[in-house]
């Protein structure tokens, strides 16, 4: 199991955060699609190798999983490990009284950063 420090390190990079944003919008992307999304939507243009290394860091942290399907390799997002951050630092001292009032503990709030901040499934019409 990945420790929380490794998770935080994986998140503490703006490019990796954007990769997660894009994979949350559409999970199951090739390296080519990820590179194009970063370049065309965010003006982020590192080399393909650099993106590949970012994906390896995210994979080591358990936030991205890559799967070979026939001749292609796809990358899938998995935000479940983020729960461990709020498990370690539950919402003690939190100002948000409504949360405490309805008894929701920190463990049910994954606090996924920016998930849903982007328009849902653009370009993925059925």
């Amino acid at each position: 199991m990945v420790d929380v420090e490794e998770l935080l390190k994986a998140l503490a990079d703006p490019t990796r955060a954007v990769i997660l944003d894009e994979l949350v919008e559409h999970t199951g992307q090739t390296l080519f699609e990820i590179c194009n999304r970063l370049s065309s939507r965010h003006g982020i243009n590192p080399s393909r190798q650099a993106i590949s290394q970012h994906l390896q860091v995210l994979e080591a942290a358990g936030l991205v999983r890559s799967e070979r399907s026939g001749r292609y390799k796809f990358h899938y997002v998995d935000t479940a490990p983020l729960l461990r951050i709020t498990e370690r630092w539950p919402n003690a001292g939190r100002q948000d009284s409504t949360r405490e009032a309805d008894g929701i503990g920190g463990t049910t709030d994954p606090g996924v950063p920016r998930a849903g901040a982007l328009p849902a499934s653009k370009g993925k019409k059925p």
Partner: peptide, 17 residues
């Protein structure tokens, strides 16, 4: 397709085998 239609800035692209 390995990539469904996706807006990439000024172009929309898709990729097939």
């Amino acid at each position: 397709f390995t990539q469904p239609p996706t807006a990439m800035g000024p172009v929309t692209t898709a990729v097939f085998d």
